[in-house]
Design a binder for these strands. Structure first.
Lengths: 221, 221
DNA sequence: GTACCCGAGTGAACACTGTTTACCAAGGGT
DNA sequence: ACCCTTGGTAAACAGTGTTCACTCGGGTAC
């Protein structure tokens, strides 16, 4: 029983030193032996806590996502729950500033070709994405601007996305399963644009040396 | 003199075997010793051709981009030069299908956190991006839909992008330095959306298990 | 023709990496 | 007192990028 605290403690230490190693030296510096060295331990001892390096990295990704969720949470906490538009903008800006402030973490979480296939359900970021869109939509009663142009052939997928959303909503906040296909569609398009913009900016993949990306981002909103 | 052919030959072999290694085993299988082994050579010999592994990888990225450019080139070659809209759609679809058909290459080129800073001018993909937008725009005489809403604060960057574009145009096709700020702006937004959509799709980062992404992509256009 | 040199390739070595195995000491439960 | 789980270690294996000293063969200069 006494070892429980100690175990959780060194576990925390492992993850935090992994984080600092990542932000200071990049993903290539995230190595088992370096972590062990940093906390005064030998490398094989880490296998008492994680099954492999990629397992550890996956958990670090989870921590990173949790931090991002906290960040967005505080951003959202300071805003009135009824002004949906400003809430949306705020969380988008929060996502961007977080990504710029933590480029290495962003790269690790978003630019890793994703565990093959099965990383859908327990994907930590997918969870926080659903949670936050749900939390925002919960404050906006079904305004439902009359189902914009949801093309025929992708109705099925949009509906599936809608269902995923209401599932996530039911688990977190009060049950309000009133999300239209139109809003789900616009949420999806919003995400595509936000992700594209932020990823291009963080990875510096614009086709010209952009001097100040902030107004470009603002204009996208 | 006789060695020149031989040298270029093994250089080609190095790059092609590196490519196949990448697509068959992923970026983690792209290793000096594996390449050397595959072509019946020892690892240090590769240093006669490239200064380091990352140097080699960079050249492989160049090859990949060249292939992508070829692909888009043939796509564009079969279309009338006056129908700009269909040309734009065709090259976007071409980009997507190429990315889906070559996910590992796409990941290597677009999801690598980018060489720090200086990778702007000689970035191979930046070149082909500019080339193709230029080639498309060259067929569309200054229709210039009256400068849409180019926000004030990013005029400078848009203008810089426009200049980069006309520079690339002047080098390739006939000189036609008639590109408005508005079109440059829309081109940029187009790129953000296209990149976001394709990257999300290839990295499987949609917040729900999308079954058929094609109509979603089509709707974005 | 005979030196020479240059350059592609080799072999051994160094400092790393992830991972496995056998072992060891301490601590609590019975 | 026993045992046995648990966190940790040391040694080893296979593999990595990279460097250094060394070949050895063909082209050039004399």
């Amino acid at each position: 029983m006494t070892g429980d605290r100690s175990r959780a403690d060194t576990d925390r230490r492992i993850r935090t030193v992994a984080r600092t190693l990542l932000v200071e030296q990049g993903a290539q510096g995230l190595t088992l032996r370096a972590i062990a060295r940093q906390i005064g331990i030998t490398a094989p001892a880490l296998y008492r806590y994680y099954a492999s390096l990629s397992d550890l990295i996956q958990h670090v990704c989870g921590d990173i996502c949790a931090d991002l969720a906290d960040d967005l949470g505080t951003v959202l906490a300071n805003l009135p729950t009824d002004d949906t538009a400003s809430r949306v903008f705020a969380v988008c800006r929060g996502f961007r500033t977080w990504a710029i402030a933590h480029p290495r973490e962003f790269g690790l979480v978003f630019a890793t070709p994703a565990a093959p296939g099965a990383a859908d359900a327990n994907d930590p970021f997918g969870q926080i994405f659903l949670t936050f869109t749900g939390r925002i939509l919960a404050g906006a009663p079904g305004q439902e601007r009359s189902d914009p142009d949801a093309p025929e052939r992708l109705r099925a997928d949009i509906a599936l996305f809608r269902d995923t959303l209401v599932d996530a909503l039911r688990d977190a906040d009060q049950p309000e399963p009133e999300i239209g296909l139109g809003t789900a569609y616009t949420v999806l398009r919003f995400w595509v644009r936000l992700y594209g913009q932020v990823a291009l900016e963080v990875f510096d993949r614009f086709p010209f040396p952009v001097t100040d990306a902030t107004p470009l981002f603002e204009s996208m909103l």
